[in-house]
Design a protein around this nucleic acid. Sequence first.
DNA 1: CTAACATCTGAATACCTGTTCATATGAATA
DNA 2: TATTCATATGAACAGGTATTCAGATGTTAG
Lengths: 124, 124
Amino acid sequence: MGAPQEPDGDDGQHIRVEIPAEESVLQVADVFSLLGDPARVRILTALLNERMRVRDLAATVGSSESAVSHALRLLRAHHVVRVHRVGREAHYELHDAHVRALLQLALDHVTHANPIHVLGESDH
Amino acid sequence: MGAPQEPDGDDGQHIRVEIPAEESVLQVADVFSLLGDPARVRILTALLNERMRVRDLAATVGSSESAVSHALRLLRAHHVVRVHRVGREAHYELHDAHVRALLQLALDHVTHANPIHVLGESDH
DNA sequence: CTAACATCTGAATACCTGTTCATATGAATA
DNA sequence: TATTCATATGAACAGGTATTCAGATGTTAG
């Protein structure tokens, strides 16, 4: 044991942080972006438990059916939800385990009010 | 056309999904929204390991110092990062365990290439 | 067939957001 | 003090986005 040996000659404080590949960064930001809208959070939260029809989703989350349909279209394009058509109805289900995990984790954090920090220092 | 007014009881179909409180929904969407930008993802990823100066952050993530400063200001306002000033330098560190967990989970999912689905936009 | 129904869609609108540019602040240095 | 350095900031502009409205599909019932 001794001084930390740097493989390529790092003397002191240099900047070596591995930013993931561009594609990974974009994918991560993309998923988070989908979850960054209250309306979609409500929709996906509703879909956490059971599959639902557009109509019922709209009633549950309190948005218009058109707005919900647009949101579902976006989520569908990103393979986050999946649709099963039954006659003239459309049953949607959450179909992305990663999104499910992220959403559940975030909801857990918020609702359980984990006291990691509540009030921060003032700045602006 | 008078729609049958239902007090709140479920008669036929039971659409009983518990959407979290409005405040929780907004908080969740807010956090995800912060993570929904590639530039901020890069910055926070860099900060996952070590605290860094604005200058080095900019060089690492490949954005201008001004853009990074603006991003850090936003993250600071949301108590995601914390600044420690040393002379004329500003050392930033990730200061939100929830954000850290979410980011690490998302990066893990993406980089480990869990074959739930890949990429592809074919929905119209 | 026609009518009611469930969902989807495109266009328009209003809002939000991230970057750049120029400049300001404040601290170290000469 | 004057200058250089590190960071912060505001205004402005460009691009993105979520909602609404009106109408289009496609489906079932009468």
